[in-house]
Design a protein around this nucleic acid. Structure first.
Length: 806
DNA sequence: AGCACGCCGACT
DNA sequence: GTCGGCGTGCTC
């Protein structure tokens, strides 16, 4: 038999299957979807078996080295999905496979140095011989790192045939194992042993007595740890193993990242609206049809209960469900809602888990130990075999689009998989993406509307404050008079406030007030950000950092000042203006440590603070009864970004933040501060009017030729030399103009708003199209031409349906 | 990705 | 004359 193998090298020329002979002793183990190590050129690499066949066009096939998996890591469906994904996103097939698997499955390649002719080496280079013999495992890269001076001498020794390099392919994926024992002999032997043992061996007797109480001795398999917990002696167990009565082995364990008791919940009774929305989902599942539902429900309308009850049905059908949640909403509270209803049937996948924990959760899915996975974007690849439902909560979130290769959107992958499995996809949001809502309007998706909050609480009242007005009145603070008053009022009433600012750090940039020069990164076309804790200026693109200059590097004046406001600065301002207020600041800087996010929220929940100040991460899911005021300090921070989705993002963010107030008995109030108080994104959010926003925004998108009226492709390239970058960009644009139909529009090349990153000059071309049969072939051709022809200096990326144009 | 092959400039 | 730069091409 012959195996078709995709080699683990994400480069164009090897992005095709290679044939390998399967040695007889591996024949049983090699199946489509398993990983294998293969000799490739003069190295050894990991590869994915995608198919088996009888014959090959090649005469001299090499044989597989070894098989890495007992159970295929890719199901047939996922193999197909990988091919589709590679084709859709213009990446190599292995890159696609890699994206579908936990990071722990990535291979580690190492070169081990082997001494072939010790006598001759001792003769020719005794020092090297002594050195190599002193190292336990002479790994090439490790030696070079610690002692670069050996490189030359080792190369010479290789040339002379004294030593050679052995390629190692290490599989990182390791299940946690626990020492365990099994019973090796029949019951009678244990009884005999028990009778033979003397008084002094009472500890062994205890073990034997315990074992004899077991109903199924043949299949007894228990960790030693657990037996010791039962009061048995580890030494006695080991003694019995030594005598051959027990066999010492291992049990694969699952690490448990979510190690806490959860209260089990029962399905809640649904409101009429909820029942109405649930019914068509259940029917579609019953009929094993594929349909996409868009569940548009205001915050607090009980979307989650609809998800839960749909999943309930999936479990009853003995199928499986995937629930996607944006990374930042994947809080322990969120997880407990699912664990509370479905207990151990739930696996969780998010970035907070360690490599090993992720791997274990993934194994639970593959081994069918769970029926539900709740996770971020990549959980859409969960290796379930009988998918019954895929849910995407907060479907408008831009984090569902992966920003590096493969540049896929979880929504597209979900729909592709659901079609294959004949099951529904449920997209849920209070502020659906324009594309999704438009599809629902055209009946491509089925719209489910939830207009009421479950507890019938009114939506909070929203005040918009004109910051220009404040400025005119001489108020240069980040707080308007009205907002400050309201914060003080809540403080007096012992209620809580949430303040939102979409910018972390202390200040955004440093400028000379004398000559106007801004301190910029020397490698990137971007201003440096001041990080107060470390007293450094940092570049957010390449990580460059420098000390804060005492004088202007341009004009030498000492008038260097910080501009822009971040959460750190607001915190300092709050401490100054309302010293008695207890403030919790939540941003990337205060929540970097594992569990700190949760800890801060718990403190706020216990009313150990009056004000919660934070960035994006507090916009979602917060639900505290005492919060009656939400303040948005700068509503336009997103509005003026050079992105056609700026208004949409602003509307979504304001709506979401507003939803944090008055969710319980006390009525809520929202204050939005803005320099553009008349902008429809701000006013429509204030009126909780998605419909009005949708109408207005669709009008503008149509006029400007943006999605959902046109599809976009963004081609970005970069090169260390500006002229070369410009020339390649020009040529790509001309290929596009020549080969694509006249109904498509080609823009550029243009220099993006950040013109240089990491010393590479950037250019972009954009295609707007409605129907373009030539698109994929032409894009593949461009990739082929500009990546292969030795222009390694040139970096090229193609982003279909980009979510951001930066 | 790696690595060899092959063709041109600067040195023991 | 040789060493070594990296452009080009191949790996079942």
């Amino acid at each position: 038999m012959i195996a078709e193998v995709y080699i683990d090298i994400p480069a164009k020329p090897v992005n095709r299957p290679f044939d390998y002979r399967i040695p007889d002793d591996l024949a049983e183990l090699v199946r489509p979807g398993v990983r294998v190590t293969v000799p490739f050129g003069r190295t050894r690499r990991l590869g994915f078996v995608t198919a088996l066949k009888e014959k090959s066009e090649f005469k001299q096939l090499k044989g597989l080295d070894s098989v890495e998996d007992h159970v295929p890591v890719l199901t047939p469906e996922l193999i197909e999905l990988g091919g589709w994904l590679a084709n859709q996103t213009l990446c190599s097939t292995v890159t696609a496979f890699q994206a579908m698997l936990p990071a722990a499955m990535k291979a580690d390649y190492k070169k081990l140095i082997v001494i072939d002719q010790i006598e001759r080496l001792l003769e020719e280079d005794p020092e090297l011989a002594a050195f190599l013999q002193s190292v336990k495992q002479p790994i090439w890269s490790e030696i070079i790192k610690a002692h670069p001076e050996w490189a030359k001498r080792m190369q010479r020794a290789i040339k002379h045939g004294l030593i050679s390099v052995q390629q190692l392919v290490k599989n990182q994926a390791k299940a946690k194992k626990a020492a365990a024992v099994t019973v090796e002999v029949p019951r009678s032997s244990l009884e005999d042993e028990l009778n033979q043992l003397g008084k002094r061996s009472y500890r062994q007797k205890e073990v034997l007595e315990f074992l004899l109480k077991q109903p199924d001795l043949q299949h007894f398999h228990e960790t030693i740890q657990k037996l010791v917990k039962h009061g048995l002696s580890r030494e006695a167990i080991m003694k019995l193993a030594e005598k051959g009565l027990l066999k010492h082995g291992y049990i694969e364990q699952f690490r448990d990242p979510y190690n806490r008791p959860v209260d089990r919940t029962k399905p809640l009774s649904l409101t009429e609206e909820q029942a109405h929305a649930l019914e068509p989902i259940l029917t579609t599942m019953q009929n094993e049809e594929h349909k996409v539902f868009l569940c548009h429900g205001v915050t607090g309308s009980g979307k989650t209960e609809i998800y839960l009850q749909s999943i309930q049905r999936v479990i009853e059908q003995e199928k499986q469900a995937i629930v996607l949640v944006p990374e930042i909403s994947l809080t322990p509270q969120m997880v407990s809602r699912f664990k509370g209803r479905f207990g151990d049937h739930v696996a969780v996948m998010h970035s907070g888990l360690s490599r090993g924990e992720k791997y274990d959760e993934w194994r639970k899915i593959r081994e069918e130990k769970v029926q539900v996975v709740v996770g971020a974007r990549s959980a859409v690849f969960a290796p379930f075999k009988k998918l019954g439902l895929i849910i995407i909560d907060e479907e408008h979130e831009s984090s569902y689009k992966q920003e590096d290769m493969p540049r896929y959107h979880a929504r597209d992958v979900a729909i592709h998989r659901a079609k294959k499995h004949h099951c529904p996809v449920v997209l849920g949001s209070a502020t659906p993406a324009l594309e999704s809502f438009a599809r629902a309007q055209k009946n491509v998706y089925t719209l489910l509307s939830l207009k009421e909050r479950v507890n019938h609480r009114p939506l909070p009242s929203v005040h918009i404050i004109d910051l220009r007005e404040e400025l005119r009145e001489g108020n240069r603070s980040v707080f308007s008079k009205e907002l400050l008053e309201k914060i003080k009022d809540r403080l007096a009433k012992q209620e809580q406030s949430v303040l939102f600012l979409n910018r972390r750090g202390y200040s955004t940039f440093m400028m000379c007030r004398s000559c106007g020069a801004v301190v910029k990164c020397p490698h990137c076309d971007i201003s440096l950000t001041y990080h107060r804790a470390q007293q450094l200026l940092k570049c957010h693109y390449c990580g460059y950092e420098q000390a804060v200059p005492a004088a202007c590097p341009n004009c030498s004046s000492d008038a260097m000042r910080f501009f822009g406001t971040g959460t750190q600065k607001v915190e300092a301002e709050l401490n100054r203006l309302i010293p008695e207020a207890r403030v919790i600041r939540m941003d990337v800087d205060t929540t970097r440590k594992k569990g700190s996010h949760e800890k801060l929220l718990r403190r706020f929940g216990k009313e150990e603070a009056d004000i919660l100040l934070g960035t994006q991460m507090i916009a979602k899911g917060l639900d505290f009864p005492k919060v009656t005021l939400v303040g948005v300090l700068a509503a336009d921070s997103l509005l003026h970004l050079p992105d056609f989705r700026a208004s949409e993002k602003t509307f979504q963010l304001l709506t979401q933040v507003s939803g944090r107030a008055g969710r319980h008995a006390l009525p809520g109030e929202v204050v939005i501060q803005s320099y553009a108080p008349d902008h429809y994104a701000v006013t429509d959010a204030a009126h909780h009017d998605y419909g009005a926003f949708y109408q207005q925004e669709m009008l503008l998108r149509k006029r400007a030729g943006y999605p959902p009226f046109y599809y976009l492709v963004l081609i970005s390239l970069s090169h260390p030399e500006p002229a070369k970058a410009a020339e390649s960009a020009e040529r790509i644009a001309s290929i596009l103009r020549r080969k694509l139909s006249h109904t498509s529009q080609i823009y550029g090349p243009v220099v993006p708003s950040v013109a240089k990153i990491k010393d590479r000059y950037r250019y972009q071309c954009m295609v707007k199209y409605k129907r373009e049969p030539e698109l994929m072939p032409v894009l593949h051709q461009i990739m082929q031409h500009f990546q292969d022809s030795g222009k390694a200096q040139l970096q090229l990326t193609v982003d279909l349906n980009p979510v951001t144009l930066m």
